[in-house]
Every structure is written in C-alpha cells, then in structure tokens.
Design a protein around this nucleic acid. Structure first.
Lengths: 217, 217, 217, 217
DNA sequence: CATGAATGAGCCTTCATTCAT
DNA sequence: TATGAATGAAGGCTCATTCAT
C-alpha cells in the first residue's frame, strides 16, 4: 500500500510550485490546528514552529482561514473519492471474488485504515472544524453525494439481491456500516491510540459484526 | 420519561443558589459555545446575549474556562451515571424481562435518546471541547470507568453465558455497541437533524443490527 | 464674542456623557490628526498622548475612522450653520445698518475670523480629509446647500437690487467672495500664522477689495 | 499653448534615462497618491497598477518618500518658475500692450489655467502633501521667493505708479490676487470639475473682480 | 450583586524594504 | 535591470479580566 504524503499531495494540488517555507507553514499549521483547534491557534505560533516570519504566512495565504481551507480542501476530495474506489465497485459486478460483501468490505476497511493512519492530524482538523465552517461542510457533503453515495447504494442493492443484506432501508444500512467503521477508526486512532491494538483481529471482529448485523433475523 | 432541564440541574449542582442573571449567563454560554466553539466565543458576546454586563460573568466565574468547566462538568456525570442505570443492571439478574439483551438495550437506547434530545447543544460542546481540554477528558474517563464500564462488562458476560453474544472480546462488544448507538444519535441529532426520521423504526433497526451482529456467525 | 470650546461642544453633541478619558482621546486625536494627517496617525500614538490605553479608544469608537468622523461631523454643522447666521440675513431686510453690504460682510468676516482662530487644528483636519472621505464631503455639501447657499443668494440678490453688486452671476459672486475670505483665513492661520499680522487693517483691505471688486466697472 | 507632459518632463529632469517600467511606476504613483493620499497608498498597489514587481520600485527609489519627492520636486519648479514668466515681466516695462495690468493678468491666468488643467492630479498631491512634508514646503517657498516674489513685487509697484492699483500694501495685493486666482482654479478643477463651466466668461469675471477690487475706492 | 469603563497583552494583517536569483 | 519571496516592525482591533462605583 503506497504512502500518502499529504504535504506532497497538497503541493501538487496547488497550481503553483511550493517554496520550502510554504511547505513548512502547512506542516506546522496541520500540527497545531490538530493539537489545539483552529480558533485557538495563533498565526504567530504557526510561524514560529514553521521557522518563518509571521508575514510570510500571509504572503501565501490571504487570511488564516484561507490557510485552513487550503489545507482541508484537497483532503476532503481524497477522503471521499476513493471511499468506494471505482475498481472495487465496478468489479463487484464482474469479479466473482469481489462479489462477496465480506471481501469487498475487508478491502475497503483496510484501505481506509491505511488512509486514516497516514492522516490522523488532518482528519482531526476536519472532524473538529467541519462543525464551524460551512464551506468545509459543503465541500464534504458534495464529495460524499457525488462520489460515495451512488456507488454505495448500488452495492447495497446488489448485496440485498444476493441475500447478503437483509430487510433494512438502504440509508439505514449505510448509517450502520459507516457508524461501525468510523467508530473503529476513531477508537483506534483518536480515543485510544496508545492501546495495544491487534488490528488484524479487530478488523475481523468489526467485519463479522457488520456482516451478521445486516443479515435478516 | 421526565424532562431534563439542564439549567435547573446545573443550578442544583452549584452549591450556592443561582441568581436569574447567572442562569441567563449559562443559557447564553451554552448556546454560543455550541454554535461557534469555546475558543471562538467571546465573553462579551455571552454577556450580550445574556442581557448582563461584561463584568457580571466574572463575578460568578473567575475565568472563561471556569465557565466552560462548570457547564460541562455536571453534564458529564449525568452523561455517564445513568448510562447503565443501576436499576437496569441490577434487575438484569433478577427481573426475567430485563434479562433479555434485546429488552435491556431497547430501554437503554430509548433512555439515551431522550437524554440526548434534551441536551443537544451541551453534548455538542462536550464532543468538541473534550479534544482540547484534558480536564474534561479526565472527568469523562473517570465517570466512564467507575460507572459504566464495570456494569457494562458484567452485563456482556451475562449475555455471553446466555448465548446472546458470540465469541467477541468484551471490549470489542462495547466498542461495537457504543459505536452503533452513538452513531445513531450523532446522525439523528447532529448531522441530519432536519431529516424526516421515523425514530421508532430506526431504533428497531439499530437494535436488530446490534443483536444479530453480536451473535456468533 | 464667546469662546468656542470644541471639546465641550463635541461632548454635548454626543448623546451620552463623556468620560474624561474620552475627552482626552478627542483632544489628542485632533492634535495629531492635524499635525500628520489621519492616515499617518496611529491609534497607539493617540492613546499615548491621551494618557490612555490603546484599547480604551476602541471602547468609545468602533474604528479609527469612526473617531475621525465623530470629531469632524459636529464641526461641519458648526462650520456651515452660522456662516450666514440667521440674525444677520434676516436683519438685512429690516435693520437699516445691516442693509449695507459692507457692514454685513464686516460682521461676517469678524465672526468667521474668531471661529477659525479657535479651531485651526480641526479645520486643518477637515480641509485635508475632505479630499479622501466622501462622508465628510457629503456632510459638508449638505450643510452648505441647506444653510449657507439660500441665504447667501438672497443677500446677493438684495445687494444687486441696491446697486452694491454689479453685473455678475450670483454663483460667481459667491465664488469670488468665498475665495477671498477663505484665502485670508488660510494665509492668516495656516500658511503664515507666525507673520506679524495687523488683523484689523487686513480685514479692512479685504473688505475693500471685495466691495470694489463686485461693483460694476 | 504647448502640451505639458509631466511624465516626459520628469524623465528629462532625471539625470539618467528612464526605463518604461520606471515611467509606469511614476504614472501609477501619481494616480494613486492623488486618489487616496500619500500615506494611504501602499507601494504594492503602485507596483500593481504599474504592472511591475514590488521590488522594482525600490530599484529606482530608495524609499517610498523618495518616490514622492522625485515626483513632486520638478513640478514645484515648473509651478513657480513660469508663474511670472520672464518674458511677461520684462516686457511689462517695454511692451506697451503688456504694460496694462489687465492684459498681463489675462495672459497669466490663461497660462496658469492651461497648466493646472494638464496637471490636476499632481497639483492635488502637492496641495495635500505640502502640509506634512517640510521638504516640499521648503522647496516651494524657495521657488516662490526667488522666482515669483521679486517679479510680482516689481509689477505691482509699476501698476501702482500707473494708478491701476490703489492704496494696498504690496503683500496684500499679492495675497488678494493669488487667493482669487487660486480660488478659481480650485473651484474649477477640484471642487466642481463636473459643473458646466463657461471658462472664458468666468475668467473675465475673475479679472474684472481683481481689477476693480485693487483700484482705490 | 451588578455595572461598565479601563486595561494591556495578544491577535491577524499590512507594509516598506531587502536580497538572492 | 527586474523579480518576488521573505522579513519583522507596526498597525488597527479584540478580548479576557480588573476594579471603583
């Protein structure tokens, strides 16, 4: 599984090339925003940790908020885009192996696990700041609605036909699945990151819980 | 189910009687903290919305942070304390009706549902600020460890014996259950409060998901 | 001729009573604005000279600009309002003494002379900042059009009838008169305040110049 | 009457040749200084409007102030130098036609009218900034004292001898004349540039006013 | 108990200026 | 010559907190 270097990604996302100072600014901002929250972070502290004069921040980002947005936006796309990566969902209808819900979910969780692991601070920021910045909310909702939702629905319906999902409304299936997966990630990386997790095992339990939970009773 | 008037509760929690001004301060603070976050809220705005002079806040709370803590602390106790209300858990071993996991969970979810419904803004504050204030984290953890955890464990083990819960580690059972229940509350009251929910039905789906999910597969 | 204490006047203009600190702020602001111009004056310098914390300024005036406006606005009214004080103009048509243009002009110039003398710094500010702040321009224009212009016109027409003013358009008469009077004030108080002026004499010369200048040739 | 292209003039004044970029800088600076005042103008805005990098300005002018001075200085000379152009004054004593005050004044006003018309923004800058920059004041005073004053005095005395000017001190004559002429220019080009002026007529009125005003009464 | 004027540290942002390229 | 990234001092303004009334 390839490494997700967010800074590099952000740099590519920006139309212009980044100076090393700008990269430092972003690195520092991500760290401190995650530690103490956007509102409680001062630009002078960012400048300090980035080893840069305070004015330099504002040469690259017109406002502190623009810095936040430009950090968070590319991540949102990345967050939603591969959520049900095309390959998986398309293959569901072709590849016998992926046609099994369990297999698909396992792939999905592992991919997400890797993604979250590489980006904990950034995801913390998104989780926190989404509540207060409509722009972020909107961006997220959009990405979700266009990229995740239709594929997810299609898959749920397929598995319903195959009898692997019982008599639940599709939205409820989504809610339950996402709750469970997100709950694992949050427990694993945010609430108790220092606990001695047996990730393989825990993923299997989670999978079993979802699989059995969604079957008719 | 009786009404949870937090303000009244907070007033009772405070050792001294509360003046009406103080009650206004708390009401205003809860509203604005929930809307824009603790760090982004100014005491002058609170004073404004409370219809009180700026100085009055500091007559009752030495610092802005103390105001936050004094709002959040009693809630934490309330949040954890009745989570597995004694009556339930004790009765599990006596009352034939409660001895059924499904029945117990249903009672629990409904009680929590009511509780969350009455306290959305306050819970938003806790969710947000826990991340940045170790005091809150500690308070929460403590309440959880002493009140919820042991009873929860006991119940899980009972249901395992009865064959209603399959071969999962107890901690994993807790994680999965809490994820699912909290996921419902968050979707219901925070992410999509304006959606046209059929709460009874949705609770039943959620129950079924947990019940089936935890059985051996 | 009574003394024009602008600060006192500003205080009365403000709806609320002024604290002594606020009076100091205004005094200091007038001084420094006049010395170096609004844009080149820093609020910290004003605070300094006023013997006040910088924050105090913003407790009374939301912005630096509001401070400027609230200094300048009452003056504008005062500047225009008595320009052709009612008593004069009304009396022109009644009082035999005032019916003479020379007498009227002499009274007018002396009154204005006193007024300017008492308010040089404030008038400097208005002269300078009018160019850049449309609000001030607008306020001035309004005061001029409603208070000065109609009376001035009436008087000019009267003196034309009496043969004391020759065949000039009324607007031109106003332009020439105002130029000459303002020119005296500016030379006297702004350009060469340190010159050894014989004010009585100079006013007489100025009067003669206008009187003769406006007569038919 | 030949055109006054200030930019070209400034370029000639500068010892070195000007690059086109430098010309753009000056053009932009004049525009913006006139619009919002020197202190309220940022070098970055000048660079922007000039289509030049921020640093480029400082390649040509060590400081922002130097830019101002180098714009204003040549103008001051031009402003004063031809005020009583040699040809006129010298001819006053020779040429019968020019020996008439009226004729001389008419020539003078028309020449100044043209000059002001071509240089409104620059003159606005001088008028504004003279108040705050002693260098400019000094430059102006000097030019006035050496070029204008002696010739003006000489002429006034001549016309007194000829009986065209009455019993006024020479300085007073100057003050009254300059007030009236400058008052016209300022009304015409700064206060009411959009009014529908009949310039020929207005100049004649102004001349008549001065001529009659200065005669003995 | 309540007020609100006053404070001064600190915040985000702008700006003139420098310098390596 | 021209660039534009970088600087850091300074600017206007906000804010939690204090205190005399």
């Amino acid at each position: 599984m390839e490494r997700h270097d967010m800074i590099k990604e952000l740099m590519e996302a920006a139309d212009q090339k980044m100076t090393p100072k700008q990269a430092n600014i972003i690195r520092a901002a991500i760290e401190i925003f995650a530690e103490k929250g956007y509102a409680a972070t001062s630009t002078s502290e960012i400048a300090n940790r980035a080893g840069v004069a305070e004015g330099t921040i504002f040469r690259h980002y017109k406002t502190k908020k623009e810095l936040l947005i430009s950090i968070v936006t590319p991540m949102i796309t990345r967050f939603a885009a591969p959520f049900f990566a095309e390959k998986f969902v398309n293959n569901v209808f072709v590849d016998e192996n992926l046609a099994d819900m369990d297999t698909l979910l396992r792939e999905l969780i592992k991919e997400r696990y890797e993604f979250v692991k590489q980006n904990v601070p950034l995801l913390k920021i998104i989780l926190q700041e989404m509540a207060f910045h409509p722009e972020i909310q909107r961006g997220y909702r959009e990405a979700f609605v266009t990229n995740v939702l239709p594929r997810f629905k299609k898959a749920v319906e397929l598995f319903k036909e195959k009898g692997q999902i019982g008599d639940f409304p599709t939205e409820t299936v989504m809610r339950l699945t996402i709750s469970t997966v997100a709950g694992f990630m949050i427990a694993r990386f945010i609430i108790m990151p220092d606990f001695d997790w047996d990730d393989e095992q825990e993923i299997e339990y989670t999978l079993r819980f979802i699989r059995n939970g969604l079957i008719d009773g």
